[in-house]
Design a binder for these strands. Sequence first.
DNA 1: TCCATTGCTTCGAGACTTGAAGCATTCACG
DNA 2: CGTGAATGCTTCAAGTCTCGAAGCAATGGA
Lengths: 139, 139
Amino acid sequence: MSTPDLTAALAATHDIWMRTNDLLTQALAGHRLTPATFQALWALDPDEQPPSMKVMAERLYCNAPNLTFITGQLVERGLVERAVDPQDRRSRVMVLTPEGRRVRAELLRTALEVTPLAALSGEELRSLTALLGRVARPA
Amino acid sequence: MSTPDLTAALAATHDIWMRTNDLLTQALAGHRLTPATFQALWALDPDEQPPSMKVMAERLYCNAPNLTFITGQLVERGLVERAVDPQDRRSRVMVLTPEGRRVRAELLRTALEVTPLAALSGEELRSLTALLGRVARPA
DNA sequence: TCCATTGCTTCGAGACTTGAAGCATTCACG
DNA sequence: CGTGAATGCTTCAAGTCTCGAAGCAATGGA
């Protein structure tokens, strides 16, 4: 393992995310969203079963009270609804509203437009995805 | 450009940084530091001329009041000192203290140990660094 | 000299994050 | 079955982070 390469890769990873976030700020503000709420919105895949709070907290590397707060913001903005999981009535699942799906798709599209990663060619992107996929948490 | 690849790459980038941060939390707490203060500490290269607040704010994608706050935290913990730039007495530069250098080196080492990127082989890391270096801000 | 600009800080407000404590539901065990 | 431990989420209080507006000192151009 090469320390300089590892350092550079980690720094670049961080920088790319921060820059993407920075370039996304205006678009988020247009929906009264912030990086934290967008991240949660992004983590809600419209094509999967609505995840529980517990699952979402793990997905976002945050704790339960934090997710309660973030979810409250999304509910307040009409993008998400809470529902009781019939399988376990202690559990609450996060359900995208139609507006939530719309906003999520729009912002995700914008994120892909502004991210510095968009400068890579198709082939470079495939290599990158392959490398990162080996170490990132399985989606 | 392939949208799924771009989406996956951006998500992986974010995930890797968040996970690294998560795994680093304990080590940071040992020095009463947080992700925000660590990020600032990391951005202070001991081998370069001490950067001005303005330069650091750009480097960290934050605004001036925010950096003033973060710098205050680092100064309070004895890791950084403020100094007047003799070239322009309006400007303040951030100088690492000896303790600051020590803590920075220690935490950077820990970060490289815990980051998921450490699982990649030397050759994979070289490829990754080459790809990311093409789009990340020049260090 | 004058005053617009620049670099930083202060201030006030809002957003985020956390641990401790509380509530309802589920589960294990007798 | 009952009963208590464990689980999932929320509330609360406190602290951290982030931002825009306003202020101060230094600089620089007319």
